[in-house]
Nucleic acid binder design. Structure first.
Length: 283
DNA sequence: TGCATTTGACCGAT
DNA sequence: ATCGGTCAAATGCA
């Protein structure tokens, strides 16, 4: 299945849905009374099953998918097994082993947010290094960070722990609105090949900067003052300058000429303009 | 030349 | 003392 093809888009969306449903299940378990629990849990489980069936169908129907890609898909399915816990107020230096706001296992590093890498560390007892990212809108006061660790036994999977809450959603949403007003022409989907798991997880380019546009950001909007990203010098200006390559949930978008211009099948899905007919034909 | 990324150093927690 | 998280100078790329 070609990366960026309609079927790939559906696969990606289903994985996102599966992840969300799993998270919802967690929340329900925590918030519901025992009497409500059964029905709500069943509903969440039903969503998971539906997503799972679509993913299974698409995976089975995929032509010539590499082993690596398959693994990534499997890992996405495994992402349903997520856990959430207590919120943590970010401090300058996080206490070792401090609990993440959310921790997931995913076949992709794409999560709809824009991250900037600020560190990498070899961790005792881990084959793979650990990556540290913070939100690209740190200058606007967004304190969200995440820690990415390639899974020991499943190289195509990444354990992603999130710390702090995003307060930059309003910025991204405003940018999205601006984009829609401008009716940017269709962007080019970059489906470049990748060799290692990390690169694959980024959808072909091992670049985290400006790579994951707010598919999720636009869903949940929260205000955050500040305009375009502006932090500079020693690196806190997100790289949405002239030639931006964007990647929404794993699909690279090249050719946008606006800092916040982005277009992708995933985005089309989210704003309701997705071409379902092509998907049906594809299947 | 300006930018993002890399990587060794630093610092706080255990 | 050790380990993990962050900082920031050095480096590389467009």
């Amino acid at each position: 299945m070609a990366l960026g093809s309609p079927a790939a888009v559906v696969l990606e969306l289903m994985a996102m849905g599966q992840q969300s449903a799993a998270h919802l299940g967690e929340l329900l378990r925590a918030a519901s009374s025992p009497t409500q629990l059964g029905e709500q849990q069943e509903l969440a489980a039903e969503i998971l099953r539906c997503c799972g069936r679509v993913i299974a169908k698409l995976t089975a129907g995929a032509t010539g998918g590499s082993g690596k890609k398959r693994k990534a898909v499997e890992a996405l399915g495994a992402a349903a097994a997520t856990s959430s816990s207590l919120p943590v107020t970010p401090t300058k230096r996080r206490a070792r082993g401090a609990e993440a706001v959310r921790e997931i296992t995913s076949g992709t590093m794409a999560d709809g947010f824009i991250w900037r890498k600020y560190g990498q560390k070899e961790i005792n007892g881990c084959k793979h290094p650990r990556f540290y990212y913070r939100c690209a809108f740190r200058a606007q006061g967004c304190a969200a960070t995440r820690r990415v660790q390639q899974s020991q036994d499943e190289p195509a999977a990444f354990v992603i722990a999130y710390y702090g809450e995003h307060t930059c959603r309003g910025v991204a949403a405003a940018a999205a609105a601006a984009w829609q007003e401008r009716e940017v022409p269709p962007a080019v989907i970059n489906s470049g090949a990748s060799t290692d798991a990390a690169a694959a997880a980024w959808g072909g380019a091992d670049r985290d900067t400006a790579s994951h546009m707010p598919a999720l950001l636009a869903v949940e909007q929260r205000s955050c003052d500040g305009d375009a990203p502006s932090e500079t010098s020693q690196g806190w200006s997100p790289s949405f300058s002239s030639e931006v390559e964007l990647d929404v949930a794993g699909f690279d978008i090249a050719g946008a000429d606006e800092p916040w211009a982005y277009s992708s099948p995933v985005w089309e899905f989210l704003n309701g303009s997705f071409d379902w007919e092509s998907v049906v034909n594809c299947l």
